[in-house]
Design a binder for these strands. Structure first.
Lengths: 132, 132
DNA sequence: TTAAAGGCTGGAGTATGCTCTAAGTCAAGT
DNA sequence: ACTTGACTTAGAGCATACTCCAGCCTTTAA
């Protein structure tokens, strides 16, 4: 990290470590428009600000909940154009999708607990010959 | 569906409709070993039993909660070999993964609710110029 | 001054999970 | 007899999301 009386800035490998995204992935996200190009330093090196990192963090929240990169891209686009109504729509759709995912995860979680109990019984020898 | 005093059996297109998987996907799952080959009828047509459909349903629970097909394949393999201990391990790993996913979804759900409220305020004109 | 470390670009390659196509078989209805 | 429609196969193609590579440039330390 580089400081000298300006805003702190970070190299790609520092950001990579902080965000757990590879440098390649960070460059890829920039290429496809998920991240705005950061400032460049000596020799064209990317210099990320804390704000850039905040955006990356938000983006990874969306990504980890399976928002497709194309949709994140649209969101970023609208955000940049200050089209809040569109941003709202996209985020609200994703909220609904998250709620659907929660339901599926909960249902499957139950089912798996049930199956695990079943295998546990077999392990304990409580039911020698009962396969479903 | 076909009945004539035997067990009921279903064609691939019937199963496709019931499970919301395309016929191509069903054949693909069979090819990679996620599904055991069903009985064949006249002209080599697949004849799925209710039990087959039960397996497909279980498999889609796993798939919808992001268990990789390779891992489902391993599970099916161990299941067929009656290696319950291995089945247990794989399912328990997936249970942990589901719990991780639930946490991430819940965190992101909160974050999005917050952002949505923010966009709502902008829409209502309550905060004209505040971008984060 | 030179060599190692780290970054740059464009583009090719990979993994996953389907999805589609071509060419053929079979059974039933007209 | 012949057409229609649903099925079969092997294999090619596609979308998504990376991941890696070659070849080059700059900075820094020895």
């Amino acid at each position: 990290m580089h400081k000298d009386r300006d805003k702190p800035s970070f190299t790609i490998s520092e950001v990579s470590e902080m965000t757990e995204l590879s440098a390649d992935t960070l460059r890829y996200y920039e290429k496809i428009g998920l991240l705005t190009s950061p400032q460049r330093g000596a020799g064209m090196q990317r210099m990320y600000t804390s704000e850039d990192i905040g955006r990356i963090r938000f983006l990874t929240y969306l990504k980890r909940t399976h928002m497709p990169l194309k949709k994140i891209q649209q969101y970023v686009n609208y955000y940049e154009l200050h089209e809040e109504a569109q941003c709202f729509v996209l985020l609200d759709e994703h909220r609904q999708d998250i709620e659907r995912q929660l339901k599926e995860l909960e249902a499957t979680h139950q089912l798996i607990q049930f199956k695990l109990a079943h295998f546990q019984e077999i392990k304990d020898g409580k039911s020698k010959e009962s396969y479903e």
